[in-house]
Amino acid sequence: MLVKQLSVFLENKLGRLAEVTKILGDKDIDISALSVADTTDFGILRLIVNKPEEAELILRENGFAVSCTNVIAIAVIDKPGGLSTVLDILDKVSISIEYMYAFVGKANDQALVILRVESPDKAVEILKKNGIRVLSSNEVYKL
């Protein structure tokens, strides 16, 4: 139930983000979610795309530093306190979250969130046990 996420190293300079999205767009690769973590000098672009292996290859060929990580995609109820319910569950079993970000789109009354944790398999098991909807790769790409 894990989803592949690509991370791309970007220097903080003009046009780098546009370049990545253009390369992917030209190859007909669809981005379902993204986030940028940045410092004063550099940023890390994190992407969920429909063809992760192909995207990784293309970006590498274009000279980018890319890595692939397994993350979890979950759906939470889109109302106050929705997210905190999920975080509570993970907190109780001491799984810490490295980072998280929300999806571009959403389904029904649910908000979609990407979580990056140290032990993803264990986290998925706990989340499911507590009735949280965990999305598969295919579900994510359709969004």
Binding site: S7, F9, D38, T39, F42, I44, R46, A65, Y99, R116
Partner: peptide, 15 residues
Amino acid sequence: EMTPALFSDEVKKLE
């Protein structure tokens, strides 16, 4: 220059 060996998806590791 960033290399595959150095790169990580986490800011704190790069810092």
